[in-house]
């Protein structure tokens, strides 16, 4: 029973430590930079809609936050294995050794809950950064796609009228050029036309490229704005799920605290039974002398 004097201290430690979980451990210090500062949205907004999400994911994967989440995940896996070993050991141990193992299991559980709290904080940071990026992108896209001012509407109308007039007079103009003896196209126009054809071919290849394919929802292609809204909804859903996970962890913390109290209570009762009050012990011993 070498460890018995430490029991109340350990249990107090477990409970105090878990008490801190009520306010998530965002303030935990880390030697490494566990932040994610995404690429400027002006650059992201130029990417094809289908590639946008992958680009954000790649940017995240290269961040300190991704490394911190990966490290915390590895710690959690190691702690889960340790915890499972301790529980197996507690089932086969007896007496003081069993108490010792149960203490260690409690401490290990507390550390697991602590680490899980840290993991969820980092996850929250990741999700909130994603939401902020999508919101900024959406603002940017809506601003650039907006069908704009009265001046722009006038420009569109003038442009449409110019094209209509050009198409309507093409035959007449070709005939006028032929009559004027200028059937040959200028060198400049021939070269320009070649480049325009090359640009058109390349532009069509870009449009057909699978990496440039528009994302789909229920088999229907989504435009950039709708796609960003979908991504935003997905990130918000992830945030709601994270809140549920935080609730699970807070329940785990409460259960560890109750286990610690139960263990303290059990050990105190056992100790009281073994020692007892001297007058009670003496009276019981004397009964035998009277009976026999």
């Amino acid at each position: 029973m070498r460890s018995r004097p430490f029991i109340p201290i350990l249990i107090l430690g477990v409970m105090l430590g878990l008490g801190g979980l009520a306010s998530p451990v965002a303030g935990q210090s880390s030697d490494t930079d566990s932040t994610w500062r995404p690429t400027a949205t002006e650059r992201l907004v130029r990417l094809p809609a289908g590639y946008l999400e992958r680009a954000i994911e790649q940017d995240y994967q290269a961040s300190g936050l991704a490394r911190a989440i990966e490290d915390t995940g590895a710690q959690l896996r190691a702690r889960a294995v340790g915890l499972s070993d301790l529980q197996a050991l507690a089932r086969t141990s007896v007496g003081a050794a069993r108490d010792e193992v149960r203490h260690r299991a409690l401490i290990e559980k507390r550390a697991y809950v602590d680490t899980m709290g840290r993991q969820l904080d980092l996850e929250r940071e990741r999700i909130e950064t994603r939401v902020a990026v999508f919101e900024r992108l959406l603002d940017e896209v809506e601003r650039s796609d907006a069908p704009v001012t009265e001046q722009d509407q006038v420009l569109e109308a003038n442009r449409a009228a110019a094209l209509e007039r050009f198409e309507g007079s093409r035959a007449r103009i070709d005939m006028a050029l032929l009559e004027g003896g200028a059937a040959e196209r200028s060198t400049y126009a021939t070269e320009y036309g070649k480049h325009a054809d090359a640009l058109r071919a390349l532009s069509e290849a870009i449009d057909r490229h699978p990496m440039n394919a528009a994302p789909e929802l229920d088999g229907k292609p989504l435009d950039r704005t709708a796609h960003l809204r979908q991504l935003l909804i997905a990130a918000e859903t992830e945030r709601a799920l994270l809140e549920q996970r935080q609730l699970v962890v807070s329940y785990m913390a409460r259960l560890v605290a109750l286990d610690a109290m139960a263990l303290a209570d059990e050990m105190a009762r056992r100790e009281a039974a073994q020692t007892g009050r001297p007058e009670d012990r003496d009276l019981t011993l004397a009964v035998d002398a009277f009976v026999n």
Partner: peptide, 23 residues
């Protein structure tokens, strides 16, 4: 010569997709 070149360039400009998006 200049007029012929101008007529060609006008046609190309009117069909140019970048010009259609120019604000």
């Amino acid at each position: 010569t200049a007029r012929r070149r101008l007529v060609d360039l006008e046609a190309l400009t009117l069909r140019d997709p970048t010009v259609r998006e120019d604000r």
